[in-house]
Simulated scan of single mutants.
Amino acid sequence: MTTDPVDTADFYALEDLLDPDEQDFLHGVRKYMTTEVDPIINRHWQRGSFPFEIVPGIRDLGLAGLPYRGYGCPGRSFLLDGMVAMELARTDPSIATFAGVHGGLAMGSIYLCGNDEQKRRFLPDMARMDRIGAFGLTEPEVGSGASGGLRTTARRDGDSWILNGQKKWIGNATFGDLTVIWAKDIDDGQVKGFVVANDTPGFQTSKLKDKIALRVVQNALITLDDVRVAEKDRLQQANSFRDTAAVLRMTRAGVAWMAVGCARGAYENALRYAMEREQFGRPIAGFQLVQDLLVRMLGNITSSWALCARLSQLQDQGRAEDRHSSLAKAWCTVRMRETVGYARELLGGNGILLEHNVGRFVADAEAIYSYEGTREMNTLIVGRAITGLSAFV
């Protein structure tokens, strides 16, 4: 008997929650990732380079800004958007991150916090991926404390704003066209958002090197030195960190989906290995302890997938809140980390070789575990929701 890892990963037929047209869309993404990305991604991961040759194909899939309505965006469901994020990460979490930064964080900031004119000006080009976006919130000295501790400043100067500061870990910024920069207004102390063209004088990027995770993602350290931004490029509906948080609420759900995809990719490759690798005259997939690891992985994936599916349904109904995204992100990334560890354990020494397509997921899981809110920060958000008591300091 032969086993198709793709079929076994969807153990409870969760793809059936999509309508037939959405399933066709998802399978189109799967085919592209399998045929065009999977054969080349290890080479780029090893070099820390980005496969720009796949961008036209990603563009043709039409997945940028998938759940947004109007302004040239597809207007599909959050459920489909989540499963697409999972599908991208199932082949490579870095490509899922590239798409999530552009379509989720950058486009999402404009979609949720921009006025109608700004949406019409930016979103159609971004949906076609004619302009690639980035999202600048995290700073060298400020990660989890972004709500009140941003050091990047914005000062009003007539019809413009002057931005100064630094941003760190900004995906897509080394080659993108525009970056949404979040800065503290020195007059009222509130966090505001600005759409900044990357070729603006004073806007400088340097690539972060020597990463051990998401090596394909081109993360930048951004330095803003008296960067002048027109008032028309200030996101007009972003008046405090509460508005920034609305973007993070949406994209944090996407990261939970990516965690499921990362776990799924490790599981599927481990299962293929177990079916092919022979010891003592038979495939190791027939050994009890190997099957125990496979079932542990599958249980983690299935429970996380089901949690994310329900979260996306709540998003589609307009009922999702911070607590829902935070529980999904915290839970799914912990289960992901456990799952990729099981996959690496199953492969033994071969688990650290890129050629077996598990070690990359093990490494990339470490970044997914941390970004868009650590487990601890998301735990505090959920803890406050269930007790009514804030444990934030």
Rank of each mutant, 00 (worst) to 15 (best):
Cys73Asn: 09
Ala328Phe: 01
Ile58Val: 06
Asn115Gly: 11
Ser160Thr: 07
Gly261Thr: 10
Ser77Pro: 07
Val195Ser: 01
Arg335Thr: 10
Tyr12Gly: 14
Gly254Arg: 01
Gly114Lys: 00
Leu307Cys: 07
Gly171Val: 02
Phe50Cys: 06
Gly145His: 13
Val101Met: 08
Asp81Pro: 13
Val216Trp: 04
Phe98Gly: 02
Asp60Lys: 08
Trp45Arg: 06
Glu355Tyr: 09
Lys119Asn: 09
Gln166Arg: 05
Gly75Gln: 10
Asp187Tyr: 08
Ala230Glu: 02
Gly318Pro: 03
Trp169Ser: 06
Asp243Thr: 03
Asp243Leu: 02
Leu289Gln: 13
Val37Arg: 01
Trp305Cys: 05
Asp199Val: 10
Gly48Ala: 01
Gly149Arg: 14
Arg69Lys: 02
Ser49His: 10
Asn115Ser: 02
Ala306Phe: 07
Gly148His: 12
Phe194Arg: 11
Ala127Pro: 14
Ile58Trp: 04
Asp24Glu: 08
Ser326Ala: 08
Ser370Met: 13
Gln190Phe: 02
Asp7Phe: 11
Met83Ala: 05
Thr97Met: 10
Gly202Phe: 15
Val37Ile: 10
Ile301Glu: 15
Arg272Phe: 05
Asn300Pro: 14
Ala245Asp: 00
Leu88Ala: 15
Ala64His: 12
Val382Arg: 00
Lys31Leu: 05
Asp38Thr: 13
Ile162Pro: 00
Leu347Ile: 06
Tyr369Cys: 04
Phe280Glu: 11
Asp159Cys: 04
Phe25Asn: 15
Lys207His: 13
Glu276Tyr: 15
Asp24Tyr: 07
Tyr267Trp: 09
Glu366Tyr: 03
Ala270Tyr: 04
Ile54Trp: 12
Arg296Val: 03
Lys209Pro: 09
Ser240Met: 04
Leu18Gln: 12
Gly349Arg: 08
Gly72Met: 01
Asp10Cys: 13
Asp188Trp: 09
Gly70Cys: 10
Ile181Glu: 04
Leu298Asp: 10
Tyr273Thr: 14
Glu22Trp: 15
Glu345Ser: 12
Gly82Pro: 04
Gln317Ile: 13
Gly202Cys: 12
Gly351Glu: 09
Pro51Phe: 12
Asp19Cys: 07
Ala183Phe: 02
Ala266Pro: 02
Gly281Cys: 15
Ala365Arg: 14
Gly70Asn: 09
Leu26Thr: 04
Met336Ser: 09
Ala238Ile: 00
Met129Gln: 11
Lys207Glu: 08
Leu347Cys: 11
Phe241Asp: 12
Val29Pro: 11
Asp92Val: 03
Arg384Gly: 01
Phe392Ile: 01
Gln291Asn: 08
Gly254Ser: 15
Val29Thr: 06
Val227Pro: 05
Asp188Pro: 02
Val362Leu: 15
Val229Gly: 03
Gly351Asn: 14
Gln118Ser: 05
Ala96Met: 10
Glu139Thr: 01
Lys209Cys: 13
Ala89Tyr: 01
Leu354Pro: 14
Asp92Tyr: 06
Trp182Leu: 13
Gly103Asn: 07
Gly281His: 15
Lys167Thr: 08
Gly62Gln: 02
Gly57Gln: 03
